[in-house]
């Protein structure tokens, strides 16, 4: 009897006309299209988590085929870049510490970086436009949406966690068109909002030309809830007068590291 029912069900399914089948699938596509991104993100994260092994292997092989043999000059250039960012980060910490001293009239005994945690993670996938990446670290390791992500190669911030599953996380990079990060330019305290452009760069709009900004200035993510101390998030790549608004700068910012070749990152977990 049961096998008879199963046969009837199967024949019903196979009897659906091609047009109805097309309509059903089209409807499913539309439902997927208008489902909120936070729900569909879970599907993509589940896929990345389930096949993280082959995906990471593929990426490592691809990078190995692209990266030229490490030379001494290349290694020292990396070291110089990392040390430069470390110096800039320390300056920012010093400035923040001085502010704290003046405001609270007491000295913290523990440096800001020592109060934060930096769980590391391997990069599983970076999208072709370099606006998002998926990393192997999830909410079970204490990561939360909004936490900053730092490149281990040069200790600069590259983006923020935008979606989470137990063992994987999606990171929205600073160049993503929907990314907005409150920043300061240099140590002079010029404040603005870093907005991604989707082409590997980001812009800081609405900065008056009265402010002193120059190419090469470090750009810091501002101290806020998810960050205990300002940290380098990029570098001013180009600064010129905005042709449409001559009283404003047109400031282009780039990440200080090569996102495409990143293999490991750390998530900045602020002190509780």
């Amino acid at each position: 009897m049961r096998s008879g029912n199963a046969a009837v069900m199967t024949s019903k399914w196979t009897n659906i006309s091609k047009r109805m089948l097309f309509a059903y699938f089209m409807l499913s596509g539309l439902i997927f299209l208008f489902t909120p991104a936070r729900v569909t993100n879970r599907l993509q994260l589940a896929y990345a988590g389930l096949f993280s092994g082959p995906l990471s292997t593929g990426r490592t092989l691809a990078l190995a085929s692209r990266t030229p043999a490490a030379s001494e000059a290349g290694a020292s250039a990396d070291t110089v870049r990392r040390l430069k960012n470390d110096v800039a980060n320390l300056r920012a910490q010093l400035r923040a510490a001085n502010t704290t001293i003046y405001q609270l009239a007491r000295v913290r005994t523990v440096r800001a970086w020592d109060r934060m945690a930096f769980p590391t993670a391997a990069v599983t996938v970076v999208n072709p436009a370099q606006t998002e990446m998926i990393i192997k670290l999830g909410d079970e390791e204490g990561v939360a949406v909004g936490h900053y992500v730092m490149a281990l190669s040069d200790h600069s911030l590259i983006g923020r966690v935008s979606a989470l599953s137990p063992h994987t996380a999606k990171v929205k990079l600073i160049s993503d068109p929907t990314s907005q990060v409150p920043v300061e330019i240099g140590l002079s305290g010029i404040q603005g909002v870093l907005q991604g452009r989707g082409d590997g760069t980001a812009k800081i709009p609405l900065i008056s030309t009265r402010q002193a900004v120059a190419a090469g200035d470090p750009v810091y993510a501002r101290r806020q809830m998810d960050l205990d101390v300002p940290m380098v998030i990029g570098q001013v790549a180009e600064c010129r007068k905005d042709p449409d608004h001559p009283l404003l700068w047109d400031i282009t910012v780039r990440a200080t590291c090569d996102i495409a070749t990143l293999e490991d990152v750390a998530v900045v977990v602020p002190a509780q």
Partner: peptide, 20 residues
């Protein structure tokens, strides 16, 4: 294809375009 390209963070556009 929608799973393979998490770029846009959306599911659906490629289901519809590839299907159609």
């Amino acid at each position: 294809a929608d799973l393979a390209s998490p770029a846009m963070g959306l599911m659906g556009p490629r289901i519809i375009s590839f299907g159609l």
